[in-house]
Design a protein around this nucleic acid. Structure first.
Length: 598
RNA sequence: GGGGACGUAGUUCAGUUGGUUAGAACGCUGCCCUGUCACGGCAGAGGUCGCGAGUUCGAGUCUCGUCGUCCCCGCCA
């Protein structure tokens, strides 16, 4: 028999009771977290969002309450009436361990099936089970902590943006597809058959129009949607801190974001300082083999192309350059470990990986016969290798115009080795700005130059003249914010002049007609007095993930999706009724599986 | 689209070269127990070995396919 809540009023949260509450009457409500039945004495641990408190049921003094407690099981929802007393023997493991609740009455408000996994701080269950029973996973103190931290971070960001004079303004979720960038999530229109809204990949155009509208300083904490394949740090819907301001210098934007980030870190107990260092994109690539370098450890890359004579390169099948690094103390790596490194490098696009071991007994190299002892020494010296180090050089399979493909491969090895060798100091929080991005990158798929960021990114003033003649040399006014090897956000000073915007579109090979169709309204808006403006968007989920010390976004999102973009609890996406499809004028076409027919 | 890891009781896992009735721990159920807090003791229930084919006298184990979860590459302005 279940009890009604009726007029029963909670007086305390479980986790709030302390020795100072001694002798008080208390009513707590929550879930049965633990049950220890000693016969005539029975203990229940009662859990709510704030913590756990122990309730004691004594058969001798309170037979009715004790009898009820015998029926209680794990995850039953209960209310306990009783008196707070000091324990004979405190339990230092829990915050309320100095006290307990002598129960006079137990109300069982709801029962519960046995959960598929225990509701504990650390969880061991398969991710699939956790996601299917997300409400139980969320019941864990760890989940509460992560979501509470995220709340505090978002609250602090809102407060800070408000103090800095920014207005939070909503932009539409149902908007139009703009063909650049990621795949859109589409929403069919019932009123206009055959037409679709797109969910925003970001409020990019709207926030720029807000600047044209004279709003001066805009921000929004907003969901964005991209229909691309997922990773541990990528969900199909994610939350951004979206920011745009008028008449900004780059440093004005940096200052705003540095202020926000320092304060967001502070609420998470992480001390950081403003004035994040800057690094040029090309330096990040050449020194760290990444556009989001992890600066918590050194092990910088060095170009070692000239250590490999042309004949050696030919034999190894190397076309482009080589980059190398010295892994401290890794000279003892076994043949098997080197093979694993090579395999990993190849899966990351390496042509090959080549090693030099600087053992105390002498220097050996996998390529000594090919490049000669002198070049081996030169290679080790170029990396500043010392005795005991392992030098790793990498070449790339494909040479991509304008990028250092080998550096990217070596950069992956750097991260892998940094992790394996324990070089990463988890207590450090290394922010930095990356600037000086190329405006264009070469698309192998389309055999054309495409915008490296989005096509509204500003162009460095003195590079403007090369826009048509040497597009690969044109630098953008874009910048990325990086924290510990993670891209937190990306932004730019925008193009605010219509003449430049149109030149850029033409350089991208878009025809007048295409332009009108895709961006017509925006190009029109640009002609009505657009102020210089710029902004940035930061990934709130990633910020929360890093500050919570988690490795996956799923740990800081209440209802995340799987790698195949499904919600295992809600079972979305799902089929819909034929009626719904009819109203939308949509028919599902069965696509027969392609079979090899010979 | 490609590569890798995993899939056995409610959960986490073990399961030899293919061989009788598929095990452990935790959880669950019942009984005993007045100071437990990972309570303890005794007894018990619980399995479509992800699914489907194939090889074989015989498949959890071998082969092929398929589904699912995770990680990575491609992709993500």
């Amino acid at each position: 028999m279940l009890d009604f809540l009726g007029n029963l009023e909670r007086t305390h949260y479980c986790g709030a009771l302390r020795a100072s509450d001694e002798a008080r009457d208390a009513i707590v409500m929550g879930w049965v977290s633990g049950r220890r039945d000693l016969g005539n004495l029975l203990f229940l641990d009662i859990r709510d969002r704030t913590g756990i408190v122990q309730a004691v049921f004594n058969k001798e003094s309170q037979p009715a309450a004790h009898a009820k407690a015998e029926q209680a099981r794990g995850e039953f929802v209960v209310a306990v009436e009783g008196k707070v007393i000091k324990r004979q023997k405190a339990n230092p493991e829990i915050a309320t361990g100095e006290v307990e609740l002598i129960a006079t009455k137990l109300h069982i408000l709801n029962n519960a099936k046995t959960p598929p996994f225990p509701i504990e701080e650390e969880i061991n269950a398969a991710e699939e089970t956790r996601l299917r029973y997300r409400y139980l996973d969320l019941r864990r103190p760890k989940s509460h902590g992560n979501l509470a931290l995220r709340h505090k971070i978002v609250l602090e960001i809102r407060k800070t943006m408000d103090e800095l004079g920014f207005l939070e303004i909503e932009t539409p979720m149902l908007t139009r597809s703009t063909p650049e960038g990621a795949r859109d999530y589409l929403v069919p229109s019932r009123v206009h058959h055959g037409q679709f809204y797109a969910l925003p990949q970001s409020p990019q155009i709207f926030k720029q129009i807000l600047m044209i509208g004279g709003l001066d300083r805009y921000f929004q904490i907003v969901k964005c949607f991209r229909d691309e394949d997922l990773r541990a740090d990528r969900q199909p819907e994610f939350t951004q801190l979206d920011v745009e301001m008028s008449f900004p210098r780059q440093e004005d934007i940096f200052h705003v974001i540095e202020t926000v980030m320092v304060r967001a870190c502070a609420v998470a107990g992480v001390k950081t300082q403003g004035s994040f260092p800057h690094m040029l994109y090309k330096d990040a690539i050449r020194k760290y083999g990444s556009d989001k370098p992890d600066l918590r450890f050194g092990m910088e890359l060095h170009e070692v192309t000239d250590c490999f004579p042309e004949e050696a390169k030919a034999k190894l099948g190397i076309e482009g350059g080589l980059f190398a690094l010295a892994a401290p103390g890794a000279a003892g790596y076994s043949r098997k470990q080197l093979d694993e490194l090579t395999e990993k490098a190849k899966s990351n696009g390496a042509r090959g990986a080549y090693f030099v071991k600087l053992s105390p007994e002498g220097t050996t190299s996998t390529v000594e016969k090919l490049i000669g002892a002198e070049n081996v020494k030169k290679l080790a010296d170029a990396c500043g290798a010392k005795t005991g180090d392992l030098v790793v050089a990498a070449s790339a399979k494909q040479q991509i115009k304008g990028t250092e493909a080998a550096a990217l491969v070596a950069g992956q090895l750097r991260l892998q080795l940094g992790e394996a060798l324990g070089l990463i100091d988890r207590k450090q929080w290394k922010f930095l700005w990356i600037t000086g991005f190329p405006l264009f990158e070469w698309s192998e798929n389309d055999k054309t130059w495409v915008s490296a960021q989005h096509p509204f990114t500003g162009i460095v003033d003195e590079d403007l003249e090369k826009l048509e003649s040497k597009p690969w040399e044109v630098r953008s006014k874009g910048y990325d914010l990086v924290l510990n090897g993670n891209e937190l956000g990306s932004g730019s000073i925008r193009i605010h002049r219509q003449d430049i915007q149109e030149r850029l579109f033409r350089a991208l090979g878009l025809s007048e007609e295409q332009l009108r169709r895709r961006f017509g309204f925006f190009l029109d808006a640009l002609t009505y007095g657009t102020p210089p403006h710029g902004g940035i968007a930061l990934g709130i989920d990633r910020i929360a993930m890093l500050l919570a010390g988690e490795k996956s976004l799923r740990e800081v999102i209440a209802f995340p999706k799987t790698a195949k973009a499904q919600d295992l609890m809600a079972e979305s996406p799902s089929e819909v009724d034929k009626d719904q499809l009819d109203q939308l004028g949509i028919a599902i076409r069965e696509v027969a599986k392609e079979k090899d027919s010979t």
